[in-house]
Structures are given as C-alpha cells and as structure tokens.
Design a protein around this nucleic acid. Structure first.
Length: 979
RNA sequence: GGGUGCGUGGCAGAGCGGUCAAAUGCAGCGGACUUAUAAUCCGCCACAGCCGGGAAGCUGUCGAGGGUUCGAAUCCCUCCGCACCCGCCA
C-alpha cells in the first residue's frame, strides 16, 4: 500500500499497537491466580477488623430468625478434617440463610468436660510428679487444658472462612452454662425422672469409672471360655452344663436360663449324666471329650423349671428360668449362666424373678464380698481380692475360678475364644459389666401422681413413647435419619448419668448417715445458684458440711446429710443441655417466647443420632416439653481413596502418613478449594477425600474464578448508574443469557433450600462452563472489545455482565466465602461492601415463549454450522471461525429463522460473514468458505471494506467508526487513564 | 450378628418408570487461537460381542441375580461390596 503524502508512515507493528490501544481490552484488579493460601488470611483479617459478623447481624436486625445451633466439638487436639467438614456445611447453611434475608446468627460452642481431657491432664501431672494435687487443682488444670485447645481450634475454624461470633462462643465449662445445666437437671429431678438404681453398667477398671455407651469401643479379644458342670440338687451324678466366656462372673451366678422352645437331652457319660440342648449335644460332646455317650431321655422346659442346682463352688443353690430371648442354639450348651450383677439380660431376668443384683467386685475390679447375700453363701475366701483386669492376657480372677472348678471336678473343658468385646476407649482395656449404685434417667417413666419404680410394661405416655412421638414432629434430612434416631430411642436402656470422675459438672446429691441418697430439686437449684456465682469448683473445694449448710432448703424436713456425692454428670448431659443453656439464654438465638429453647436446625455427623441429637431431644423434651429443633441435618463421614473411614482415633497411631488435620489441607489448597470440595460431594453419603479429587475441584475453582475475572475485567468502564440499559432494550443475545441465568438461579435456590449443595456445585459449574464460557463470553468478546466504548450494544452486554457477576457472587458466596467476596468488592457500583452483608433476591427474567423458541432454533443452527466449521478447520481451509464465511442453503423454518436473525446468528457462530442463500429447495445445509475481503487489523473480522478508508487503510468500516468515536471520547469526556 | 444408608462411564456426579448407554465437568486424545494468555475455543472419547476390514447397524452391560411392567439405571426381592449405628454370644 502507498502511504498518502503527509501521513506519517509507521512500521506495521506500530500500526497494530496503535489500533490495539483503541480496543476496549479487559482490565481488572482481580488476579487470575488465586493464591488462596496467602491471600485468604488477609481477607480474614479485614473481616475481623471490620467486625464483619457483627455487621452482618446488624444488617438483619429484626428479620426473621434462622438459628442453626452449633454442636460443640470436644476441646482437645487440632481440628480434624472431618470436623472441618461439619463446620463448613454449617457455614453453607447459615451463610445462605443470611443471604436470603434471614437473621442467621452462628454461635460456636465447645464441649469441655470429660474423660479424654482428664485422662490427658492426669497423665501430664503424673509425668511431673503432681498426681496427688486433689480434685479442685486437677479441675483447674483440666480447665486450662480445654481453654488452650479452644484457642487452637478457634483459629483453625476461623481460617475455614466460617463466619460466627468467635469471640463469644459458648463453653460447657462456663459457670453460666453449668448453672443452666443444673437447673435443667433440677427440672428432671422434680419430674421424678431421676432415680438411684443398681444396674450393670460398663465399668472401666483402670479409669475407675462407669462409661457411657459412646465411650465404649469394640475390639477383638481372646477370652477364656469354659464348660462347667452345675450339679442338680437331689439327683446325684446329674449335672446341667453351662458355657461362659467370663469365668470370673461365676461367683456371682444366681440362676441358669434355658430356652423353653428347645429340646434338651439327658445323656450318660461313664458314671455321670449331663443335660444339654439336643441341638448342641454333638458339639458339646466333642468339646468335652464324651466318647460313647448314651442317650437317656429328652427333657423340655417343663422339666427344667422344677429343678434346682448346686453352685459349683459356693454354698448356695439356684433355680432354672426361661430366657428365650437370649438363650440361643448357636454356641454353648443351651444353658446360660445368669449373674444379675454382671449383664443386662441377666439383670432383667434377675429383676423379674426377684433375685438380688449381686456384683461381688469392687471399684478396683477385684473380687469382694457384699451385703447382698449372707457371707457364708458367697465365694470362698481364697478368691477375695483377685483382680479381674488382665495382665499379659491373663486374669488372676479367671485363673483362680478355673483352678477352683478344676479342684471341684466341675471344669469339663477350657479353651480360648476369640470374639469382639467392648473396650474402654481411653485405656483400651476390656470393660466389665458391673452392677453398682448409679443415677439414672428413667426412659420408661410415666408421669403422674402415682409414678414410681421402673414400670414393667411401658405405658403409652411413657417418656420413651413421648420421645418417639416427638421424633415424628421433626424433619430429618436425609429422611433415613429418622429411622436412626427412632432405633436409638426405642432401643436404649435407662440412661446412666453418673460418672465417678472429677472433670465434670458435679451431681449435687448428698448421703445421710445410713448412706441413703438425697437428691432434691430445691437443693439442685440452690447448687445451680452457687455455681452461677462462684463456679462448680466450689463443690470440690468446700467441705460436706459447708455445702449442706449452703444448699439445704430452709424448710428441709428430710434426713440430714453427712456426705456429698463425688459423682459428676455424664458429658452428654452437658452438651445435651445446650438448648436451655445456650439457645434459650442468648438473646440472638432465643426462640419465640413460648419456646425460647427452640431453634431451626441441628447439623452433625450421622453418629450423633446416638449422641447429641438424642441427648438434646431427650433432655429438652424432659425439661422443656419439646424437641429443640425443627430440622436435623446429617452428613456422612470422610473416607479415603480406599473407602476407609478417616477417623480421629486412627490419627497418631501410624494409620496415616500425613496428618488428617484441617490445617494440613488448608495450608496446601486454601479454604475456598476445600469448601468447594465439600460442596462438590453429596454429604448424605460418605465423602471421599484424596489429593486427586481436591485437585479436580481446584480445576473447577479456576473455571469459576476465570469467569468472574472475565466479567469484572469487562466492566472497568461501566457505571451502572449511568450506563445501565433497560431490560427490553437489551440485545437478543444478552436477553438470552439472562434468561438462561434466571433458570439456573431458580434451580440453584431450590437446591440450596433443600441443602443439596452438591447440586448447586453441579449446576453452577455446568452453567459457567457451557452457557457462559463456551458460548456467551466467547461470542460477546467482539462487541466488548471492538464496539465503541459507549455504544448501545456494548453497554447492553455490560449490563448483562454486571447483572451476572453480581448475582453469581451472591450465588457463590455461601460456598466460596473468600473468592465471592473478593470479586464482589470489584463489581462497579458495589462500593467495596462485603457480599456477606447483602441480600440475594432472585430476579426473574421471563422471556416470551416465541423468543425462547427462536433461540432454540438458533442453537440448532449453531450445532449444524459448528460441525461444518470443524470440517473446514480439519481440512485447513480456515483456522479460526472469523476467517470463514458460512452459507446456509435450503428451505424451512430453520432457514427462515436464520434469515430473520442473521446478524445474531453470525455472532453466535463467530464467523465474519453469514449468507442465507435464497431459492434453493431442500434440507437446510451449511457450507463453509474462506471469508471475502481482507482481515481487519483491529477487529480481525474479514471484511470487504478493509482499505476503503484512506486514513485507516488496514481496518474495516465498522472499526473506522469505532476509532473515530474513541478519539472523540478521549478528547472530551474520558479521563486520561482510559483508552 | 442386627439395623440404616449407599453402589451409574478412568474420576466426580446428574438422571429416579418410556424421549437413557446415560447430562455436565474433570482426566485422556486430536486440533484452533494468541485481543480472558500459567487463559480461551473446537472435535473425539464407556466396555464387550456380532458383522470380511472401515462407516453405519445390532446385542448385552448403570454392583450381581431374579421379579413386577407393554417398557426399568429408575419399583420389588435375594445376594455381594462399602460406610455408619447398634449388639456382644452368656
């Protein structure tokens, strides 16, 4: 080309650069690289220093409440990734509800009392030789320990982006909490639900305490199983044979159970005769080495109930009772030795038949005589003091019993027996069942004036049945959670609530001179008052007499106390009281006046059906009259690549190479990726955690981030107040994307409302990848970059982008707490405010049905054209679509549609030229050719008018206009720093 | 041992009575672009068998096997596997 005289001839690259500067190329401060690990903490500090949580709450003052009440994690150790999952899910819920206009406070809590801490602290004290410091000092050490870990965990939880009142959490060790808990307990006492009973409980010998079900774990164990002769009274030489895996319970044997549906055989072996179950006879004969035994006759339950047997080594006799529910024909002999003090079934059978609940074992797990039987009927003296606890797999008590049996000729057979057996979760030793005096909450309690001892048959209005009825009124998500809680409640025994531990809330009970317990609601309330003013340590610091004088009601007419109780409450009473101690107590959580203890949601792992869900339900029902929650949401557990559970207990036992702490993951990926990973999976099932998966979610994160970045970067010169285009003036393509978005928004809200975050994840990422990135963003680049900055078409698209980015930020805010906030700040017109303070009101964009129909035809055409373009590209005819000219031939509605919306379709195909050829009959077919004309140096379209303008010989007519407009603008209105 | 839940392509995960061998994303393979640039766009992509190769087509496979139904990934039963909860065999 020949430059006109007078024009300055520029090298080509100058020309290029020159036009490049006339384009509206994207610019933004929103970096492509997230650097979450480095930058999230900065945002966190900003949130904190600006009091974001407080401001979010203030922004919803007076709005309808949505209270998710936090289940308190145990204040011990680092935050485990599974605990992090729980907190993140809670934050999704709270954050979403807040976004939708609810007043959604979040008050985190910690469970502070209990054996694990006491154990750990005692261990440390022992190391430093301080074990004898006494209960009050031990409690102070436990308190310090708990507070230390609360601080550690608080930092780790905050790092996840969980917004809440972290400076004012609830702690079960606070005196206000303890006082409220005791007041609730007083209500239970007043209602007659609490009784002192002697019942077999799990007993940990090294820990010297009763254990809750939750504190027991099952492991394989080798027991000494024995076949023992129980000689019949009045039938010399005839014995029944029993089988047991716990020989040490034989001194406590008071009866033998049989199954009335079984047939029994009397057989002769040498000079002796034995009775065993007919079905098990072969097995037993083999075990006991009865060669050539002889059938004498068969017997049934009717015969057996007449009989009496002589205890093999104690001077007493026992009787036979039917125990059909637990005597089976699978193992043993068909006869079950019954020790009512050492087993639940034994206990029930004993209760039914008036046997003493005899448990001749002391707190140290040694044989001991008791007052339940005359001394001469109890075990021989040589057994007294023998320890049950095994050392190196041998229990002295077992050995001594077996020795005695051998000496009496009663031991038919002894062998190792491998089975799963309950162990103490702290000391890892086998637990024993041991009947002892404990406090219980009576589950089959019938309220009313005549309520007394445990009812034999649960009445319809029993506490258990009221609890079951209450379960019906709660929404369980997912719905199978209801089965779980029902099973837990209907199957549970009375609740043993006393613990022989120091680190807990004291049970304010006393004993009189005769050792009779005194538990009175008024005394408990007085104790609550004392705890409220000076803390629960007072119970351990003051003497028995001081306490009694302080707490005794003024008009006390009962027996005088001489001794205080040293038991503490089960920790499940602690956390289970939170509806009273937290929800009803804190202004921001408090429910309606009639039900101040009531909130909208509890959200925990599925193990809590037996745990906190149940204890909360039972305690609230008993003391408040109703369940504390509307909805209980449950999630599964984290499993690793091999689908093995990632458990806290495997941690530190060499189960993992890397620690499964929240920290470890956050340090590597940042919180938003972890949050997105949580969102990506259906929490109703197990959640798979592995590097691979998290990295995949990281990909999705990048796609989302990039889409936000694209939108922001094309809004740098957009002022919504000035440039916003009215909905009906938007270009068809912009209307299309807003309509698509509106559909997405509806679906996403539906998913959020159902707490199906993985559906949100799916839908959003699908929309962003397909509708936005691959279609809309790609097509619209041309308008944004090459149209005059202030042209209606560009402003229309910017209006759409502005709406999209605004709404996407809100939509993503619950999941990507950091990134959504980061993007939100940069959206023009948002004034740098936080996305966590705004309300999300979905805007419906309703396109007319015929407009929708047009677009569905347009996309059908696009599909056809893209296939042809791809062929042309494969054939090296064209490179990118802008080099192409698309020709549509044929007839029919599609062709008509193309003709009517030719320019929209051209854009949608991203080609330089589209021709809808006329006249030719037949199916619509696309043809692709090299575009006419030359490539415009500015917009890269191929146009026939390139070169037509002498001043701008390398660009097309449209660009000439755009360049002129941009020059005018930069001379007049534009600030110097804009292009 | 009992209860509950789950089991879809290499991975995640839609689908929950026909339009489904099955969306979408990721991974993989092959291209394009260099004005979203450590980005973006396009195409292909489950397995096995049948058919002379290829294309097209057919058949079977949504843990396995049965059943209900005109029709099943979707409903029912049994089994297997995984997870959670419970129980602990005296």
């Amino acid at each position: 080309m020949t430059p006109k005289s007078g024009t300055v001839r520029l090298p080509l690259f100058w020309m290029h650069t020159d036009y490049k500067n006339t384009l509206n190329l994207p610019r933004t401060d929103f970096p492509m690289k997230a650097e979450l690990v480095r930058r999230e903490p900065e945002r966190l500090r900003k949130w904190e220093s600006s009091g974001l949580y407080r401001r979010a709450q203030a922004a919803r003052a007076g709005a309808q409440k949505f209270v998710l009440h936090d289940g308190p994690p145990f204040a011990n150790g680092d935050v485990h990734i599974g605990t992090a999952l729980n907190k993140i899910l809670k934050d999704f819920v709270v954050s979403y509800k807040r976004l939708r206009g609810f007043n959604a406070p979040y008050v985190p809590g910690w469970d502070c009392h209990g054996l694990p801490i006491e154990f750990k602290v005692a261990q440390e004290l022992r190391k430093t030789g301080q074990e004898g410091i006494g209960p009050a000092a031990l409690r102070s050490a436990c308190r310090a320990y708990a507070l230390k870990y609360i601080d550690v965990q608080r930092t780790q939880f905050k790092r996840l982006g969980v917004l809440g009142d972290w400076e004012n959490p609830y702690l079960t060790l606070n005196k206000e909490y303890e006082a409220a808990e005791l007041e609730l307990f007083a209500d239970l006492v007043e209602a007659g639900l609490v009784y002192r009973g002697k019942k077999p409980v799990y007993w940990s010998i090294p820990c010297r305490t009763a254990l809750a079900e939750a504190e027991v774990e099952y492991k394989d164990h080798v027991s000494q199983s024995v076949y023992v002769k129980f000689p019949l009274v009045g039938r010399p030489g005839v014995s029944v044979v029993i089988w047991t895996t716990t020989p040490w319970t034989l001194p406590a044997n008071l009866a033998v159970a049989y199954n009335s549906t079984f047939s029994y055989s009397l057989v002769r072996v040498g000079k002796e005769q034995f009775i065993v179950s007919a079905r098990l006879l072969g097995q037993v004969a083999e075990k006991c080495g009865w060669e050539g035994y002889e059938m004498v006759r068969s017997l049934d339950g009717g015969h057996l109930q007449e009989l009496e047997y002589q205890h093999p080594f104690c001077r007493r006799a026992g009787r036979f009772f039917a125990g059909d529910s637990f005597v089976d024909n699978a193992t043993g002999t068909g006869f079950v030795h019954v020790a009512p003090g050492h087993g639940l079934e034994d206990y029930q059978l004993g209760l039914k038949n008036g046997l003493p609940i005899y448990s001749p074992v002391d707190d140290d797990g040694r044989f001991a005589l008791t007052n339940d039987l005359p001394a001469e009927q109890q075990m021989p003296v040589e057994l007294v003091g023998k320890p049950i606890l095994e050392k190196n797999g041998r229990s002295e008590a077992n050995e001594a019993v077996m020795e005695l049996l051998r000496a009496k000729g009663a031991l038919l057979r002894q062998e190792d027996y491998l089975h799963s057996y309950p162990h103490c979760w702290r000391s890892k030793t086998p637990i024993i069942f041991r009947a002892m005096d404990q406090w219980f909450i009576e589950i089959d309690h019938v309220p009313g004036p005549n309520a007394q001892a445990p009812a034999a048959e649960p009445a319809a209005n029993s506490f258990r049945n009221r609890a079951l009825a209450e379960i019906e009124r709660v929404a369980w998500v997912p719905d199978w959670g209801k089965n779980r809680i029902q099973a837990a409640v209907s199957g549970r025994p009375d609740w043993c609530i006393s613990r022989q531990r120091t680190w807990g809330v004291p049970i304010p009970a006393f004993f009189d001179r005769d050792g009779r317990p005194i538990l009175d609601a008024r005394i408990v309330r007085n104790a609550a008052g004392l705890v409220r003013s000076v803390g629960s340590n007072a119970w351990f610091e003051k003497t028995d007499a001081e306490l009694w004088n302080l707490l005794k009601p003024a008009d006390w007419a009962g027996a005088e106390a001489v001794r205080k109780s040293n038991d503490t409450l089960d920790v499940w009473i602690d956390s289970g009281s939170s509806s009273r101690a937290v929800i009803a107590t804190r202004e921001e959580l408090r429910g309606e006046d009639q039900e101040p203890f009531h909130c909208q949601m509890y959200l925990e792992g599925s193990d809590q059906h037996r745990g906190w869900f149940q204890s909360s339900l039972l305690l609230s029902l008993a003391a408040n009259g109703a369940a504390p929650f509307d909805t209980v949401l449950t999630h599964g557990f984290m499993v690793d690549e091999d689908r093995q559970k990632i458990s806290k207990s495997r941690q530190g036992q060499g189960g993992y190479e890397k620690p499964q702490t929240s920290e470890a993951y956050i340090k590597k990926h940042g919180a938003d990726v972890i949050r997105l990973w949580v969102a990506s999976q259906d929490y109703r099932n197990d959640l798979l955690v592995s590097e691979k998966r998290i990295e995949k979610v990281g990909e999705t994160y990048r796609i989302l981030r990039n889409a936000l970045r694209y939108q922001l970067s094309n809004l740098y010169d957009f002022d919504p107040a000035r440039d916003m285009v009215a909905e009906d003036s938007l270009t068809p393509l912009d209307r299309w994307i807003l309509d698509e978005y509106s559909k997405l928004e509806q679906a996403v809200i539906k998913a959020y409302d159902a707490f199906e975050f993985h559906v949100v994840y799916q839908k959003v990422s699908q929309f962003v990848a397909v509708e936005l990135s691959a279609i809309y963003h790609d097509v619209v680049k041309d308008r944004l970059y090459t149209d005059p900055a202030n042209s209606p078409r560009r402003r229309s698209t910017q209006t759409a982008l502005h709406r999209l980015v605004n709404s996407l930020c809100k939509m993503l805010a619950p999941l990507l707490a950091f990134t959504a906030d980061e993007a939100w700040e940069l959206v023009p017109g948002n004034g740098g405010n936080s996305v966590h303070l705004v309300a999300w009101q979905p805007v419906e964009f309703a396109m007319a049905p015929d407009e929708r129909a047009t677009w569905s035809q347009m996309f059908e055409l696009r599909g056809m054209a893209l296939a042809e373009l791809e062929k042309a590209r494969q054939a090296k005819q064209v490179g990118k679509a802008l080099e192409a000219r698309a020709i549509l031939r044929g007839t029919g509605p599609l062709v008509e549609c193309a003709r009517a919306h030719a320019e929209s379709l051209r854009e949608l195909l991203n080609v330089s030229q589209l021709e809808v050829a006329s006249g030719k009959e037949g199916k619509p077919l696309f043809e692709v050719a090299k575009a006419d004309g030359a490539k415009c140096a500015r917009c890269w379209h191929w146009e026939t008018d390139v070169g037509a303008n002498a001043e701008h010989p390398t660009i097309c007519g449209r660009c000439v206009e755009a360049v002129k407009a941009s020059q005018n603008e930069s001379r007049s209105t534009r600030a110097p720093d804009t292009p």
